[in-house]
């Protein structure tokens, strides 16, 4: 067994599946037709994993992400996150799970306009009554430091580049110390260099123990993860560990003048 001791002294099992999906199905009724977006998917995500969920358009990866993120509920099957079966939770309980156990990073950053970075990052903690203003500020500052944006705490989105905005969004996703960080095409709006920078940040966070689920359709970005789950027509087509490439190395390998 591969065990380690956490900060609070409790012993956690590194091989423990923090996400367990059992025979998950999701049907959509469109008019008189039933669309089977997911046709029975089963897999686990263990603590500390960096999983790429891949697939073409229509493969069910968006549906998968919505269910993983507790934004949607499966038609049948079970979804355990941190021991809780989200498939049978009420709307408010799902909101609570999203608030405390999940961090989202979106393709279009989804930052609030005219709002400073520190306030963006504080936002998830505002919906958690057990955290007071002082702790909220401290944790937001810490999260900004982790993504290397501490010096941009008082900047608003229109004063920052896309890469910087995505870093703020990542800080917002990790501020609540989530069980899993879910990224939806997080590099989709960025150029190659910035994509590599963001991937390097994800790798760094993963090394520090953050579990990441990374939805993408770009195979070259998926190379920076540790495991690839390939979906096709609502089923898992391939699920294998990959040889992880260092995003930092890829970044260094880019020609110095590629600033177009």
């Amino acid at each position: 067994m591969n065990e380690k001791t956490t900060n609070d002294g409790s012993v956690v099992n590194n091989n423990e599946a923090i996400i367990r999906i059992e025979d998950l199905k999701r049907d959509f009724i469109v008019g008189s037709e039933t669309v089977h977006a997911l046709r029975g998917v089963t897999f686990d995500i263990k603590r500390g994993e960096f999983v790429a969920i891949m697939g073409t358009s229509g493969s069910g990866k968006s549906t998968m992400l919505n269910i993983l993120g507790c934004l949607d509920k499966p038609t049948s099957g079970h979804y355990y996150i941190d021991g809780v079966d989200a498939a049978i939770c009420s709307k408010d309980q799902l909101a609570d799970i999203r608030n405390k156990k999940i961090g989202f990073v979106f393709q279009s950053y989804n930052l609030l306009p005219r709002t400073t970075s520190i306030e963006q990052v504080e936002l998830p903690l505002l919906y958690n009554s057990s955290i007071n203003a002082k702790e909220r500020r401290e944790r937001a500052e810490h999260a900004l430091e982790l993504v290397g944006m501490a010096n941009r705490a008082n900047h608003t989105p229109n004063q920052m580049s896309g890469g910087q905005q995505q870093r703020i969004a990542i800080a917002r996703a990790i501020v609540n110390d989530p069980v899993i960080l879910l990224a939806d095409e997080a590099t989709g709006n960025l150029d190659t260099r910035t994509s590599y920078e963001i991937m390097s940040l994800f790798q760094k966070l993963n090394e520090q123990g953050v579990t990441i689920g990374f939805v993408t359709h770009e195979p070259d970005i998926a190379l920076f993860t540790k495991r690839q789950v390939m979906l096709r027509d609502g089923k898992i087509m391939k699920d294998n560990l990959v040889e992880t490439q260092s995003a930092q190395a890829a970044l260094d390998a880019l020609p110095a003048s590629s600033d177009y």
Binding site: A95, N110, Y127, N128
Partner: peptide
């Protein structure tokens, strides 16, 4: 709308 979606994604309940 997008802001409302984001707030819900990060844990806002309908009531909030």
């Amino acid at each position: 709308t997008k802001e409302i979606g984001l707030r819900m994604a990060i844990g806002a309940r309908g009531k909030d």
